[in-house]
């Protein structure tokens, strides 16, 4: 049975497992910023970019192990988690602070993976909004600007920004609910 388009990440995972070459590009476009944000919590910026690359290469190489009953972002961030752990372990000569280790491993680590997977799902859904709405939503929620500030930056009337933010916010809710529904 084919999953509906709105199954989002799962559909990407299934395409990856099927060696669909465009799936990796789609996965990267949808999830790379969230994966980068996640690994940047633990490793330095240069290393984070390496870990990011490794994570997606692993996802491509081992996509056959992706179980579509699992949400794709959960699987992807589990890989990112492993690669981040590897990177810290390989730092034989450098001290890694206790807080970082505690946050990365054990209960906290699992919780963080789930939280970033959640955020990545939302971030990917934002990417599906019509451009006008997406831009306003990104500025409001990922750059932390007020609607007034957005109106100034975009040189748009405040009413237009409010209308786009309102439609985008509700559409985002609809997309996420559809995705959840399609997954069942």
């Amino acid at each position: 049975m084919e999953l509906p388009d709105n199954a989002g990440g799962r559909a990407i995972g299934i395409r990856l497992a099927d060696h669909d070459e465009t799936a990796l590009e789609d996965a990267y476009a949808a999830y790379a910023p969230a994966v980068l944000a996640y690994v940047s919590k633990y490793v330095g910026r240069d290393e984070a970019e390496d870990v990011l690359q490794r994570t997606f290469l692993d996802a491509w190489r081992h996509a056959g192990r992706y179980d579509p009953r699992q949400r794709f972002t959960g699987w992807l961030f589990t890989i990112a988690h492993r690669r981040a752990v590897d990177t810290l372990r390989n730092r034989r000569t450098q001290v890694v602070d206790v807080e970082t280790i505690r946050d990365l491993t054990g209960e906290d680590g699992r919780e963080t993976v789930e939280r970033f997977a959640d955020a990545a799902d939302v971030r990917a859904a934002v990417g599906k909004l019509p451009d006008h709405e997406r831009v306003v939503i990104e500025m409001a929620y990922f750059e932390d600007l007020t609607q007034q500030e957005i109106a100034t930056r975009l040189e748009l009337p405040l009413g237009t920004v409010k209308a786009r933010a309102s439609r985008g916010t509700r559409r985002l809710a609809t997309l996420m609910r559809a995705e959840e529904g399609g997954a069942r």
Partner: peptide, 26 residues
């Protein structure tokens, strides 16, 4: 009714925004 839908979207977005925010140290 509108507010209910808006609240669901807002909640998802603000949670994601908080999670993906780069750490202050960075």
């Amino acid at each position: 009714a509108d507010l209910a839908d808006t609240a669901v979207g807002h909640s998802l977005l603000s949670g994601a925004g908080r999670t993906l925010q780069p750490p202050a140290s960075a």
